[in-house]
Design a protein around this nucleic acid. Sequence first.
DNA 1: AGCATAATTCCTCACATGAGGAAAAATCTG
DNA 2: CAGATTTTTCCTCATGTGAGGAATTATGCT
Lengths: 210, 210
Amino acid sequence: MGESSSERTSRRGRRPAGQDARAAILAAARAEFTERGYVAASVRSVARRAGVDPGTVRHWYGDKARLLSAALGLGEISPTEIVRQAVEGPLDTVGERLLRAALTMWDDAGPEPLRIALPAVLSDPELRALMPQFLLAEILGPIARRLPPGEAALRANLLGTQMVGLMMARYVVGLEPIASLPADAVVAAVAPTLQRYLTGELPEAAAVGA
Amino acid sequence: MGESSSERTSRRGRRPAGQDARAAILAAARAEFTERGYVAASVRSVARRAGVDPGTVRHWYGDKARLLSAALGLGEISPTEIVRQAVEGPLDTVGERLLRAALTMWDDAGPEPLRIALPAVLSDPELRALMPQFLLAEILGPIARRLPPGEAALRANLLGTQMVGLMMARYVVGLEPIASLPADAVVAAVAPTLQRYLTGELPEAAAVGA
DNA sequence: AGCATAATTCCTCACATGAGGAAAAATCTG
DNA sequence: CAGATTTTTCCTCATGTGAGGAATTATGCT
């Protein structure tokens, strides 16, 4: 964890043009958050890794939460928008469309953001407590609005269970063979489940319980 | 967070018989780990909450990892054993048996152990890296051994995705309505998925990808 | 009753963290 | 070119952490 003085100048003041401290900080943050977890990583450990002073990190990103947001690139993709688009179209293929959209999003981003964000959120009871509202409003809500009332919430919930489980196994944990299965194979196996949850027969006992 | 001197004596030495410091420490640990997350909770914060000195915590439980194990009551229930028992019997109802066993185990324990353990494990890249092996060996392995070779691993994986997703939604996140759905209703909705994953038709594209 | 053992606190140490602010150095602008 | 602005480090502070060990006090055993 020692800083290499060949990589880090010790004089105060502005660096010559062309050096991108912000990018180095963000890359270091992603690495630190991934390797140590958000809580155990510190602003100082990120700064050390980036080869800058902690004051520089603070200057650009303020506190650690904002550094996390920046490192995750939040705001660049909107899961809500992705869901909204996928949910449009015929209902008898909505399961597959949602799954493909999610797999594309996750595959594009790689496992890092999920591996950083999920434990960070789950470790904080206040953030964790916000997740149901967020999920219902932003992810499952647009789906439920396409379904007949009465079972819509339960059906969207069930879809959520399968999607989050797949996300966990494939991206967060890296469970094989599903972690390296081609997307088409995943869709072939899992989309029928999603479709049944959304539009298929739910046994009476499930519906009564809702 | 301040300690109440009416609850804590300040003299050194053994306490009169009848006071159970260990139980108080474990209860405090569970509360602290749940409310702050494992990493952010400290041995000192646990001790403060329990009304004892940090040295006492250290005396009984050594380091924080061992305190976590004790607080979670690890060793009292064996998921592996539960899976092994549920997997015995006719294959055409194994999905439901596994699900009932898991729901019982989770319901009995309440959300706390999962809310403590999951972020703790996922925040630590070394522990996280061990999860696939553990899951495959201890949970999914006994299931896969009951299935015909060739697709056994994929089928067990698929079952795992649904189970972990259900666990996340129902217990960790508290997503409604599934969080408060009666177990029978959950089984009615989800067991057919598990059964299909284990013994049902998997589309060709899924099987080829495995 | 006396001694050994067990349980608990107090003390100390080295180290780490987030945060604020001032000084220094490069760039930008008119 | 000079001054303003931007960027970066150094310095300081208050607070917290894990860990080791010795002193103290109650219990257990003979």
